[in-house]
Each structure stands twice: as structure tokens, then as C-alpha cells.
Design a protein around this nucleic acid. Structure first.
Length: 149
DNA sequence: GCCAACGTTGGC
DNA sequence: GCCAACGTTGGC
């Protein structure tokens, strides 16, 4: 059992959407490190901190869990999608994803509040220059976040 | 809209 | 394989 923080723009998919939809493909990741986490390290049932980014109040907005193993992201094959990748083929797909199931909306633990908590200071998402949309969360960090929600 | 930080691309 | 140029992320 591992833990993760996954960023989503609430204008695209919010925690409300994720809870309502149930298990849904986490499409659109186009970064190799983030892809590799999904491909190599995620397992069904892993805990996910659902983070709202690029919005008025960025922060952790709810909880979710990994709901599938990795499989190809269909949007890479769709020329009409903004995630289309002309260099990818069905025989050798470049981009994989997992299904993520929103489990519950929580209070918003804002980025600014997170920065005030010493017990969260080790979180990758808080490190300077960190931009990855998927980052691992330690057991200690996970427990510390849960206590604050 | 700005810009720091980081990732990717492509010429050599 | 290096690295400059360019693109993207994402908070502010």
C-alpha cells in the first residue's frame, strides 16, 4: 500500500467530479516521471491526496484511491484531443494511466496552510520548483495530512 | 500576466 | 552526449 498526491485542475476535474464519477481514467499525464509512477509503482487501493492546482485556492481538496493498474491513455490516439501525441502508436503506446476513484471531499487544506505545518515540510509538492503532477507521499505525511482534514 | 524552475527537443 | 533554446507548470 502506497500513498500519492495527484494534481488536478478543478476546472477540468474537481474533487466533486471525481467522487460523482467513481473510477475514471486519469488522462492527460504527459510527463515521463509521473507516467512511470503510474506504470511501475501504483497498485489498486493505494491512497491518493486529491489536489486542486492552477486555481484560486490551490490545496488538498479530498481523498481518492487508485482503482486500476496501468493501461494506455486513449487521448494520445485522438487527433482532436489536446493530449494527442502523434509519435505514439497503439502497438507501442507512450502514455499510460490508471483509474482513480474519488472517495470523499474534505475541507480544503490550502497550499498556504500546508506550508505552515512542520510535519508536512518534507512533502515533495512543497519543495521549491516541484511541478510534478503525481508525487509519492510517505506514510508519515499521509497520516499527518489526515489529522489536519 | 509574470516569472522561476524544470523538462524536452534537436543541432552539433 | 552536450547544451542552448524553447515549452510547460503553477503559484502569485
Amino acid at each position: 500500500m502506497k500513498y500519492w498526491l495527484m494534481k488536478s485542475e478543478p476546472d477540468e476535474v474537481s474533487i466533486d467530479d471525481a467522487v460523482r464519477l467513481g473510477p475514471a481514467p486519469w488522462f492527460g499525464v504527459r510527463n515521463y516521471q509521473a507516467r512511470n509512477f503510474m506504470r511501475d509503482q501504483m497498485s489498486i487501493g493505494d491512497g491518493v491526496l486529491f489536489y486542486h492546482s492552477s486555481c484560486a485556492e490551490p490545496g488538498i481538496a479530498g481523498l481518492a484511491e487508485v482503482a486500476s493498474s496501468a493501461y494506455p491513455d486513449e487521448t494520445q490516439f485522438d487527433p482532436k484531443s489536446k493530449y494527442f501525441d502523434p509519435k505514439s502508436t497503439r502497438e507501442n503506446p507512450r502514455w499510460l494511466l490508471v483509474d482513480v476513484k474519488g472517495t470523499r471531499k474534505t475541507r480544503l487544506l490550502s497550499l498556504s496552510e500546508m506550508r505552515t505545518k512542520p510535519e508536512l515540510a518534507t512533502m515533495t509538492v512543497l519543495q521549491k520548483g516541484s511541478r510534478l503532477s503525481i508525487t509519492p507521499v510517505t506514510e508519515e505525511e499521509w497520516q499527518a495530512v489526515l489529522k489536519l482534514l
